[in-house]
Design a protein around this nucleic acid. Structure first.
Lengths: 208, 208
DNA sequence: ATGAAATGCGAGCGATTGCTCGCATCCAAA
DNA sequence: TTTGGATGCGAGCAATCGCTCGCATTTCAT
């Protein structure tokens, strides 16, 4: 268990510096990926010296960890909005919309993070929590699906949830990468894709 | 244009060594990714010294390039099987099956290559050709879709083809990663997902 | 005002890694 | 059998990069 070390007292200026460095790191990581991003480049982007950077972060991993926590808390907030069990009885198109919208928004607000934390060049320690959250999404979707169609075997519920998540993830990248003007088009296609896959299985609540 | 340098004469033994090194590189790259894979590790895996490795490959990039060419020619062969324009008038489930099967097979036969060449830690030079082939796939699918439903606007044809490709790519990873025993299940879901998305648009040949 | 602590700098250390170099050995053509 | 080139080795070079260290400056509580 990683115990909190008695982190030194920060002045307001120091806290600002930390955010400034973390912001710069988000840029550099997004552009270059974790492995190719150098700490010196992050420091330069933040307009500080390498020494200053290491005044606030123990090492490269710690910088990424800060970003990981930012992303994770944003994700968790989105999950609360997206996976309300009460949605289970809604018409399928609306159900999809309620789930998809918050997840898209959080990823548009944090561009690059999804790619960064699913990349393989990042230390296991940092990608693991995000992957775990991703697994949790499958679980949350499974709950909604199971609540909607109780007669569906648990194994099939799981399979359907995994596939729906994969479809969502793939098209999410396209939506985020698209210029803002085209996003609605791709979001529409995303909805159609999910609807097309899910309708035969869980189109009507209560049926098997 | 990259001109062939007058590569030195190889003995049969040398050719074998090259394949042996390339095979080892495929393993190491698949395990560690391009950036984290060291040439010394590749040499060790191949059971040769670093000097021997560089007897046959100019640099790290050249090793990956050999693998890229392997993958690309395998992909091209699969594309020939998968994107026959004559498929356009088949019933949709069969059309999907004809396209999907060769693409799945080639990726099962070359595990790790898809992930390797779509990773961002690889030099642009090497990922670009594979990305270009991927773009070509969208074009090939567009042709089939357009041939099937001539009344569909070109822009919409393109959008549908992109989305279908994305759905395929996402579930392909799951199929390849799954143990052989479960593959048929995931392939079935992949077919259902594509069918669900495509049926409303191009379900019947000739309709708009 | 003053001292202690926080902030800041940047040259450069140590480890890693792609790659080289000098030299030994193997092979095939003459 | 001889000989030139292909194959093979592995210590170590050079460049990169994460990170440190010594020291200067700023901030803040007293």
């Amino acid at each position: 268990m990683p115990e909190e070390q008695p982190q030194r007292k920060r002045q307001a200026r120091g806290v600002r510096r930390m955010e400034q460095i973390a912001d710069a790191a988000a840029d550099v990581f997004a552009e270059a990926g974790y492995a190719k991003a150098t700490t010196n480049a992050i420091a330069a982007r933040a307009g500080v010296s390498p020494g200053t950077l290491y005044q606030f972060f123990a090492n490269k991993e710690a910088i990424a960890e800060t970003l990981a926590q930012r992303y994770q808390s944003a994700l968790r907030a989105a999950h609360e909005k997206a996976f309300d069990p009460g949605f289970a009885s809604l018409p399928l198109p609306e159900l999809i919309d309620r789930m998809v919208t918050p997840m898209i928004d959080v990823n548009i607000a944090n561009p690059g993070f999804k790619a960064l934390f699913s990349a393989t060049d990042m230390p296991e320690r940092l990608s693991a929590p995000t992957r775990k959250l991703h697994q949790a999404v499958v679980g949350r979707i499974s709950e909604v699906v199971q609540a909607r169609v109780p007669a569906l075997p648990a194994e099939r519920v799981r399979t359907v949830s995994v596939v729906a998540t994969q479809i969502f993830g793939a098209l999410l990248s396209t939506v985020v990468a698209a210029p803002a003007a085209e996003r609605e088009i791709w979001i529409g296609e995303l909805r159609e894709a999910l609807l097309g896959y899910l309708d035969p299985v869980i189109g009507e609540p209560g049926t098997a």
